[in-house]
Design a protein around this nucleic acid. Sequence first.
DNA 1: TGAAATAGGACTACACCAGTCGTATTTAAG
DNA 2: CTTAAATACGACTGGTGTAGTCCTATTTCA
Lengths: 133, 133
Amino acid sequence: MLKLSKKVEYGLIAIRHIASVNNHISTVKEISEKYSIPSDVLAKVMQKLTKGKLITSYQGAMGGYTLARRADEISVMNVISVIEGSQVSITQCFTDEPESCSIYLNCTIKNPLGKIQHNLEHVFNSMKVSEIV
Amino acid sequence: MLKLSKKVEYGLIAIRHIASVNNHISTVKEISEKYSIPSDVLAKVMQKLTKGKLITSYQGAMGGYTLARRADEISVMNVISVIEGSQVSITQCFTDEPESCSIYLNCTIKNPLGKIQHNLEHVFNSMKVSEIV
DNA sequence: TGAAATAGGACTACACCAGTCGTATTTAAG
DNA sequence: CTTAAATACGACTGGTGTAGTCCTATTTCA
């Protein structure tokens, strides 16, 4: 409940790692070994981060990944939404189809939860990778 | 990801409901019908809230539930932890056995996530049922 | 041409969640 | 004393999501 997924954790660790080596090209092998992350899982995470344009990939031998933006221009929220493929939402109310919630019409806690939702978004948006290096 | 469970939503709605009728005794039937919540599920939630001493139960005909404390002494965090049986924690790092995380030793994001964790706890602790009536 | 690297689909095992069902117990009221 | 209304609670199911594994294809450097 209210847990971040392992994929997001791995993504944050990887991006932070690249930032910490001054954006030198880094490979899945190197990162997965250093942080004890299963390499296949990390590989998929890196592919998502690439598609989300947070990092840049270089294929082939001597390839790897570098950041696609400055570390202070990548927020924790960027990482989460790229990896999860959706926005953070503590309930269905704050997704793109709130009406699909089974209790939508009679729900009395939308507004209070909205405050919490808003707060959470603010925290994730304002924390940048540059702060966690 | 980062979702509140339906049980917690139901619990909040139920507690808010009882508060909204000035703590008059309320039944599962009444609440489940009013808010379109499956009654069996709500019943279990009410039992947990009772065990957690947030509400008081009265068995038998004419029975039901009332709040066990003033609405301004019940926080959203109280409801969550009683229903989930554990504290809110966005990662394994902030449970009672952080070392069981597969990447515990090499994890570089404990501290930044700790800030987020702390913030979230604060929000949930400070929002009281009295505010959402 | 071979080795090192990313790209990506298919699959499995497991855990969690929401909901249902059945039964027991308690208590007010007729 | 019997019935009805209510809580208590365990067992079970179906669905969904997560984490991880495996396999193959593609790219590129040396």
